[in-house]
Design a protein around this nucleic acid. Structure first.
Lengths: 117, 117
DNA sequence: AAATTATTTCAGCGGTTATTGAAATATCTC
DNA sequence: GAGATATTTCAATAACCGCTGAAATAATTT
């Protein structure tokens, strides 16, 4: 992960509503959830939510797909893991032995997916 | 760690120059380094650097102490660990068993040992 | 095809951010 | 104390942020 990617991801998460959105999507699992449900859960105006989704997406932290008239947003666990990995590496450089390996982040309890990848 | 603290820490790190500053301080170890050396290493104007230090400090990521006419800034590893922990917990909630424990972050081992990335 | 639902786009606004240059403060040396 | 060094404070500015309201687009239902 490049530094610019890390900065982008950090910036995307460094906002109250966006952090909430991302957490909600993480909880929702790999299938994600429709924008409207997120708006309802977090009580955000739909256009405001679009604004935040755009930022999360630009930072590579979420994906979107259309399903009927709904847009389904889903967290990208790999991106989150890459960020944690980057921070850990940068934090622990010089003392790798004393640091736990980068935290692995998997979808919240979900679907019978293979968890070891 | 409260959400507001996490957001503050994320925001503090979500800026090119500040991320550089923090990384440099992490490398510098617990003793920290004087503001002037940071300015020299990163080629930042001293007043600009003060601005960024203030933000890192407000976010609890660095400490300062005066030594003669120099101000010595040092990374707060505990704060960084708390952030990683927060992100990990929030990322892995619902599937705690499947996630690696929070990364532990220690000061870079005393000397300037070259490490492979 | 008209009406309904879901989401995005657009324009605008006040607030914040990162930077610069000039001046001020603190400390040390002579 | 005068002068030099290290850092901060202050004022100004352009750029970006997060939010709102109104309108547009897309897909579904009738």
């Amino acid at each position: 992960m490049k530094k610019s990617d890390a900065v982008a991801a950090l910036a995307a998460l460094a906002q109250d509503n966006r952090l909430d959105v991302f957490r909600l999507l993480v909880e929702a699992g790999p299938e994600g959830m429709p924008a409207g449900s997120v708006a309802g859960a977090l009580k955000l105006a739909p256009n405001t939510l679009t604004f935040h989704f755009d930022r999360l997406r630009d930072a590579g932290l979420v994906t979107v797909r259309r399903q009927g008239r709904s847009m389904i947003y889903a967290a990208r666990y790999d991106a989150m893991n890459a960020l944690l990995d980057y921070l850990t590496k940068n934090c622990c450089q010089g003392a790798p032995d004393q640091c736990a390996p980068a935290a692995a982040c998997k979808p919240a309890r979900g679907k019978r997916e293979k968890m070891n990848a």
